[in-house]
């Protein structure tokens, strides 16, 4: 499973990764639009640099290990690949935007200004990583603030860095456990809680919240059919008994 590790303390905010991403995916120039959010991500910007005081934090799709968007998509247009990337197939998409509702990080963006719109999000440069190369953004980074590799190895690297500089970092690899773990990890000297929606009560991955209800669907279907059959039989019999009673009273 591939992953990206971004070290917030190393990022200088030069936006080379943003530029590389736009070039790689032929994304058009972006203008501020009234349907954009203020985090710099948009249908034409799949990664952005947030500035929080004097820290620069790169925002991109987290490629969750158990992605809410993938479990939400009714047509399997979004897929978690074995390499770790969450990819999007526009030819299947129907435009329901349930993935945008589902994503706990608010990542997927939409072509609001187009008559034939698609979801737009980081694909971890799936075409590159599937042939053994690394994504455009990590290639472009001049300070190695954002690096690409195997998730296990990057986790080890991150923990080693924390161990080496315990004063510099918050003792936590962001993305190791959140919503079941993500393929984009962060090391930081500030809390990155603002990057996602407030995660109250979420201990497990989001798809698990619906899996119980979804697994109850076939029994509910059959059960309701049986219940209706039973009810019909019961009511019919009740009617019949009442009928017989009436007939009896009538004949007396």
């Amino acid at each position: 499973m591939k992953a990206i590790l971004t070290d917030v303390t190393l990022c200088i905010g030069c936006q080379e990764c943003v530029a590389a991403c736009k070039t790689k995916h032929n994304l058009e120039p972006d203008y501020p639009r009234n349907f954009h959010r203020t985090d710099g991500l948009s249908a034409r910007n799949w990664t952005s640099i947030l500035q929080k005081d004097e820290h620069y934090i790169r925002k991109q799709c987290r490629h969750c290990l158990e992605p809410a968007c993938v479990s939400a998509c009714p047509v399997a247009a979004l897929v978690k690949t074995p390499e770790g990337a969450v990819t999007y197939d526009g030819s299947k998409c129907i435009g329901c935007r349930y993935c945008m509702i589902a994503c706990p990080y608010g990542i997927p963006r939409y072509d609001w200004d187009r008559a034939i719109p698609y979801i737009q999000k980081c694909t971890l440069c799936y075409d590159l990583i599937s042939v053994g190369q690394q994504p455009a953004c990590t290639t472009a980074c001049p300070t190695e603030a954002t690096i690409f590799g195997e998730r296990d190895e990057l986790l080890a690297v991150a923990k080693q860095r924390i161990k080496d500089n315990p004063d510099k970092y918050i003792n936590r690899v962001f993305g190791e456990h959140e919503v079941g773990g993500t393929s984009v990890l962060y090391l930081s000297d500030i809390d990155l809680g603002f990057m996602s929606y407030p995660m109250r009560d979420i201990k497990s991955s989001l798809p698990q919240t619906t899996s119980m209800a979804m697994s109850a669907v076939p029994p509910a279907f059959v059960g309701m059919g049986a219940l209706m059959g039973g009810l019909y039989w019961f009511c019919k019999r009740k009617d019949k008994i009442r009928q017989q009673k009436n007939d009896k009273e009538g004949s007396e």
Binding site: A72, C73, A76, A77, K92, Y98, P207, T210, A213, M214
Partner: peptide
Amino acid sequence: YWQPHSAL
């Protein structure tokens, strides 16, 4: 295109 995990 089936995706039976999705409520939608």
